[in-house]
């Protein structure tokens, strides 16, 4: 008999692809060149975030120490990612559906994390009746079931809304429905696992087998189906626009809230020097293709074509 099953192999492969997929996206973002400033207020790390003020409100701002309120930034991200506050304020109808979907999925992630933690503790030798294991198992069960239900409600609601709301119909493609149905099958299969295993013990044992690289034993059809669907989704997610769930951090941090000034001798200055030496090949006559951006910027008064 093989020491580990094909389902377990699928789980390991999933883990690697998912991590590599997400990492490659993040690395790609960090590898992009510095861009021109394009910030948008209010910016949470600014001291006058309350009304959208910035350091540019001060005379001789460059002579003053830069004050960034990191705590406010974290608070903003926490509330925004968890509760989708911007959507709540600007599109309540959509929020009623989008929030349960996203919050439900976050609960599912926490569920998986807690079960994983319990599995680690078991692998380290704690007994299945240890109070910590029981506690983690109990919390995970509640969060998991609530998460599955919320996410399913959100999916069904969004499918209906995309199909019926006039402003969404023309912008909704088969793939958008496919994605929602895919998520629905994942969470529904998770819910079915719970119907046959009210404490998700089989999932925990399966996770333990993954940690210890030991044979998981024969799995029931419900859990097998759930693992397969969950794995396929985790492989698929990083390569779709659904990765906005975590990539939106960069849209804020690296673009809309990126108001770092270019101070003499600062870190921005050297990065700017690099990009100004890039060559551009734009074809319009006034662009003077072939020169560096630095040269292009200097072709001002005398070299302008009529």
């Amino acid at each position: 008999m093989c020491s580990i099953s094909w389902v377990q192999i699928l789980s390991y492969v999933t883990f690697v692809i998912c991590v590599v997929g997400i990492a490659s996206k993040v690395i790609k973002i960090y590898g992009l060149p510095i861009h021109l400033r394009w910030e948008l207020y209010p910016i949470p790390h600014e001291k006058d975030f309350r009304y959208g003020g910035s350091y540019l409100e001060e005379v001789d701002w460059w002579k003053k120490p830069r004050k960034k309120n990191f705590l406010n930034f974290v608070k903003f991200l926490f509330i925004e990612i968890l509760f989708v506050r911007v959507l709540y304020h600007n599109n309540r109808k959509m929020w009623y559906l989008s929030f349960p979907l996203h919050f439900g999925l976050y609960l599912v992630i926490v569920w998986l994390g807690l079960l994983f933690l319990a599995a680690v503790l078991l692998a380290l030798g704690l007994s299945t009746e240890h109070v910590l294991i029981l506690f983690l198992q109990g919390i995970a069960t509640v969060l998991g079931v609530v998460g599955f239900i919320l996410a399913a409600v959100g999916c069904v609601g969004l499918i209906i809304r995309r199909a019926t709301a006039k402003q969404l119909q023309g912008y909704s493609a088969p793939i958008d429905y496919f994605n929602l149905v895919f998520i629905l099958t994942v969470v529904a299969s998770g819910f079915f696992v719970w119907l046959g295993d009210s404490r998700f013990l089989t999932i925990r044992e399966y996770l333990t087998s993954l940690i210890t690289f030991s044979y998981a034993g024969p799995l029931g059809s419900a859990i097998t189906l759930h693992i397969i669907l969950f794995s396929l989704f985790a492989i698929y997610l990083p390569f779709t626009h659904m990765s906005h769930a975590f990539m939106k951090f960069f849209l804020w941090d690296k673009v809309l809230f990126e108001d770092e000034p270019n101070l003499k001798g600062g870190s921005v200055e050297s990065r700017v020097t690099t990009v100004l030496n890039y060559k551009q090949t734009w074809s319009a006559p006034h662009m003077h293709a072939g020169g560096t951006w630095s040269e292009t910027a200097s072709k001002g008064v005398d070299n302008e074509e009529k």
Binding site: I29, W38, M247, L251, V255
Partner: peptide, 14 residues
């Protein structure tokens, strides 16, 4: 990258 470093990141993400 070379032709549009100026706004490549914001554009790609949007």
């Amino acid at each position: 990258r070379e032709n549009n470093w100026t706004f490549l990141m914001p554009l790609m993400m949007s």
